[in-house]
Amino acid sequence: MKTVIARRLIALIPMLLGITFMATMLMHLAPGDFLDQVRMQRDADPEYIERLEREFGLDNPWYVQYFLWLKNVVPWDLRSDFGYSFHYKVDVWELLGQRLPATILLSVTSLAFAWVIAIPLGVLAAIYKDSIFDRISSILAYAALSIPEFFLALLALFFAARTGLFPLGGFTSTEFEFMSPVRRFFDVAHHLILPTIVVGIGSIASIMRIMRANFIDNIRSEYVTTARAKGVPEGIVMFRHVFRNAINPLITAAGFAFSSIVSGALMVEIVMNYPGIGHMIFHAILQQDQFVVLGALVMSSTMLILGNLLADIALAWNDPRIRYD
């Protein structure tokens, strides 16, 4: 198991190299120099610009720049240097450190929300197959699958504005600095509720469908008859025997669901003004803030790949038949 994890983590490296190389190339296909933005700022110090050009080798061709960037990113001296944000005027690494936790938090709560809603629904739809409940939930699943996140985010803001029950976006209240730790926790939670629901809803449908299909498959299997023949009550047959089997493919699916969640979170972060890396990359692209874009790409892809890896580990842990070695 450990070697598998190590191998997967090593496989991450060429993947990230490929992605960032591709991204650098693409960004240099874009017209204009991203230093234009800096130069246009009145207060820009020419010496400072010169220093930037030297440091990042901006007068070199893009592939040379890429290797310079790479040289800085790789933590030779145990410290990654992801470059400098021209827009925010801080280290990209620092910026990522501020934004990444918010995105990870939102992704995790959304995934949890989606599971908590989708699994019972999928199980019930399987047990009461072809009933009214099954029909309605499958229609709702289509709806959840089809609603664009940013539209849902707008509706959520609309709801928050009309009822005043929830804050209008953001991650914390303005008085956050002056709050006690407990109140801080509740403040963040309060701000998280709507984004979580909005991001999570899109994944409910697919998780529910997979759960329903697996459950139905497993209900028909022979070990269910064995359990019934032992005298096990129907409820335990379903929730102990069938459930533990039906959940396995779902764990793999959680890896995929994570992909759509990270993507969906990007729109929701922008619309609901939630300070995560999605929010950050959007503004960085508008500003052609190259190093921020690269940093955000690296982080979001790493998140995805690690999410998949975690799903595989969880699967091996839940399904005794799977042993990686």
């Binding site: 993947m15 992605i19 991204a23 693409l26 960004m27 992909s259 759509s260 990270v262 993507s263 969906g264 990007l266 729109m267 999605g278 990359i281 959007f282 692209i285 874009v293 955000a296 790409l297 979001s300 892809s301 998140m303 995805l304 790949i305």
Partner: peptide, 11 residues
């Protein structure tokens, strides 16, 4: 596919 779709779309 390793890059979250919308991120790549924006880039």
């Amino acid at each position: 596919m390793a890059v979250p779709g919308l991120y790549l779309l924006l880039v």
